[in-house]
Amino acid sequence: MQQRILQPGEIEALDKTSFPRILLPQVTTLFAERAARLRQLADGNPIADYLQFAAKIVDAQQAAAASVELAALDISTVERSQQHSMPLLPAAEHVDPAWQAVLDRMLETLASAQGLPEPLQPLIAELRKLSPTERDDIATTLLRNDVAARHIGMAPFIMAALQVTYAKRAAALHAADVPYTDPATICPVCASAPVASVLRIGGKSNGHRYLHCGTCCTEWHMVRVKCSHCESTAGVHYETIEGSKDVVTAETCDECGTYRKVVNQEKDPFAEPLADDLASLMLDLLMSEQTRFQRASANPLLYVAVAEAQEDAPAQQDLIDPAQ
């Protein structure tokens, strides 16, 4: 009797212990849920004003994601990416031109938003006046984590527009098309660094850890107790603020001297990786003041983190207060 050879997808379907390797962004709900979480986390938070401001940026992302249509992208490189373990759409190597229309739509929404701090209006006007080439140059430097001090104020707006663009690109993919990358610590879709990792609940991903891309919002699986920056399994420890509910902890690595936060939905089902990372800035301050560990990657809505080593605490506080 002739037997049919099962394909990988069919084998996984038979395995009741299987779980998704890749979680692609659900753009229709991603930004609305993130904005709601930011507002929830703002209550009683030392940086409440900034979280409320960030929520307005995410509202603008939601509006842009719903109204800006992207032309179909040629993904004929899927086979080549899989063959060479390369990300599908490396953002820093070629900035997707569609992001410019997304930024314009976001700035239009923000310019008319109620309660936006008055000092931000000139910044929005300046962003609108920049030429496409100037915008692309700034976007490229941000994606490469090379942030000039004069662009820190612009960074959250530009990164937010890039995030919408690449999240929509990622959402149009099939999980099976996403390659295994080397190293496994960069996003297999856009080659960006994760902003944080998240312990998921619900469905087949329940109990598993995923790294959450700071640019395209794709998530990819990584085992627990493994450094998400250098992949070491030795010398991994966890730090938290005393008295917290351990929803957010800092995973430190003795091997590479970095840390990245872990957001635990088992402790709070509404926890969201980017929002909870941003709202736990006090943990970042604790890490910078009391430990030797450096943050592995920045939060795209607070890009001042890239320059933390050059700034003292008072300067950082000035930069995170949009009302000043």
Rank of each mutant, 00 (worst) to 15 (best):
G153W: 14
M154N: 12
V164H: 00
V164Y: 00
Y166V: 11
Y166F: 14
A167I: 05
A167C: 05
R169Y: 06
A170C: 08
A170H: 09
A170I: 01
L173M: 01
L173V: 00
L173N: 00
L173A: 01
L173R: 00
D177E: 09
P179Q: 00
Y180R: 13
D182W: 01
D182A: 12
P183F: 03
P183C: 02
A184L: 09
C187G: 02
P188W: 00
P188L: 02
C190F: 02
A193H: 09
P194G: 03
P194T: 00
P194S: 08
V195I: 11
I201A: 08
G203L: 07
R209V: 01
R209L: 07
C213T: 02
C216A: 05
R224L: 14
V225W: 05
E231N: 08
E231G: 09
E239P: 07
E239I: 10
E239S: 11
E239C: 07
G243M: 08
D246Y: 04
D246P: 04
V247K: 04
E251T: 05
C253E: 00
C253A: 04
C253R: 04
E255N: 15
T258D: 03
T258Y: 08
Y259V: 06
Y259W: 03
V262E: 15
E266I: 07
E266P: 04
F270N: 13
F270E: 12
F270V: 03
A271C: 07
P273S: 13
L274N: 01
D277G: 10
L281S: 03
M282S: 13
D284A: 08
L285G: 06
L285I: 14
M287F: 06
Q290H: 15
R292V: 09
F293S: 13
P300F: 01
